[in-house]
Design a protein around this nucleic acid. Structure first.
Lengths: 263, 263
DNA sequence: ACGATTTATGCAGGATACTGCCAAACTTAG
DNA sequence: CTAAGTTTGGCAGTATCCTGCATAAATCGT
């Protein structure tokens, strides 16, 4: 009532969007931000900063940690231990994906740790044909009583645990699938679907072409990022299953005609 | 701007996640880390470092050891298989088989639990091409640094964890291998090599035909038995590796011109 | 212009997380 | 075996976080 702008003088950041922008820049240059530090810097309470950070984190722009935030790093862990990362979200996504499969369908399933989890949530009553280039997935389905599993051969890429190459592609091209679950390394509304390996990109392209419906499974952390090799535009997906819930993140996909399921 | 690596501000690391990231990087570049060293480096107590290491270890990202930690490359997928059967004998057989492989060779390896063990005993220096219809074997080789792995596609037989069918056979027929390790379900000097599945029998036939040398791996308990589907006469084998040592059991094979290695 | 609805912010509290210290148990090396 | 170094689990202090609520600013509809 008294002073219109309590402390916000020239040079001080008073608006939320401005702070967000600035936090991102700072994160880019310093590699880390602390909640307490930001609070004194912008002359706002720590609660406000925390809200800012929470918001930025929920739209996937930063990685929130106790005490502040870090830039979202590309995971430097090419091991099996990726399975542990984001467990919670992957479970939700995988379960939603498993529920999409109907009796009698032919389903293409790509590699990746999220896709691997689909196996756990497939109803044991389900009768379908699963086609995959992921040996771990085939193994995970070995205990399922009614599924028929077709393993796609090819060169085995150790890091990703999938097969690739012309052999894999040829075989995929001779299939007509109802459904395809594509493992997403990264997805960006404008850039599209991208991966870190050229061979894998070709395989994914073939899978997209072979299937009526193409479903992308992607956790929040990978949205809005991109990698060197392009698979295709995001619009090649007919559906997106994700744990992201921020409308600003999801709407760009909806406007491209992609059905979005948020778990 | 170049020197913005974490090292530059090692004394100021305040966030847990930051330390974690840094520890992983350090582990990647130095090959090991010491708790006491990390403590002075980050200016936190050793207790905190130990907690960090414990946490990283429990999520599978590092291997905790007394005094510090090591990278965790050698750890493979948590196989939940029942390979306990005949452990002792299978280890000896698998080790002898692994020793047969030479640099530059193309090696066909069939499914089966004994064959799977070959992966563990393959020298990490060995440079060769492994062709297999066993997804578990391909996975077991994923941590090997120098091998090239070709996965044979086909219908996945859940009980045996191998691929079969015309697709598998066609692909095998287009290969010229130096060596072939055949998993033996049962072997009889007169009846020959037999298995419990027709499709598998065809695949094994193709493998025998595609390889210069054919090695049968068989534990004592399976010798002298037979199953419904014939792969071919015992004489199709050029070598037999077994834990049987009874001359009466082995001589019938020797007299067919088969080299016999008893472990 | 006015009140009503929405949005942003700050504050209080209870809950949670992180850290350092300590004692007991354990490991490693002589 | 002992001795030194290491690890673990419990404890307490502090910092950080979240929830709900109240206030202030901004937006909106009439």
């Amino acid at each position: 009532m008294d002073g219109m702008k309590p402390e916000a003088e020239a040079g001080q950041i008073a608006l939320k969007e401005e702070r967000h922008q600035y936090i991102l820049e700072l994160l880019g240059s310093e590699g880390r931000v602390l909640a307490a530090d930001l609070s004194t810097r912008y002359k706002v309470s720590e609660d406000t900063i925390r809200r800012d950070l929470r918001e930025l984190a929920s739209s996937g722009k930063i990685q929130r940690v106790h005490g502040g935030a870090l830039p979202r790093r590309a995971e430097a862990v090419p091991f099996v231990s990726r399975q542990q990362i984001d467990m919670e979200s992957k479970i939700g996504i995988a379960r939603a994906a498993a529920d999409m499969i109907r009796d009698g369908q032919v389903v293409l399933i790509d590699g990746g740790t999220t896709n691997l989890r689909i196996a756990s949530y497939l109803s044991r009553e389900r009768l379908a044909t699963i086609v995959t280039n992921s040996p771990p997935l085939a193994l995970a389905l070995a205990d399922h009583p009614r599924l028929s599993v077709l393993m796609l051969g090819g060169n085995f890429v150790k890091e990703e645990r999938v097969t690739t190459g012309i052999e894999t592609i040829r075989r995929v091209e001779s299939i007509r699938a109802d459904l395809c679950f594509l493992g997403m390394c990264s997805l960006h509304p404008e850039v599209g679907i991208t991966v870190g390996d050229q061979e894998e990109a070709y395989v994914k392209q073939a899978m997209i072409g072979a299937s009526t419906e193409v479903v992308g499974l992607i956790s929040l952390g990978k949205m809005g990022t991109s990698l060197p090799y392009l698979v295709g535009p995001a619009s090649r997906l007919t559906r997106l299953i994700t744990d992201a819930s921020d409308e600003d993140v999801l709407n760009p996909y909806r406007s491209q005609g992609i059905e979005v399921t948020s778990t």
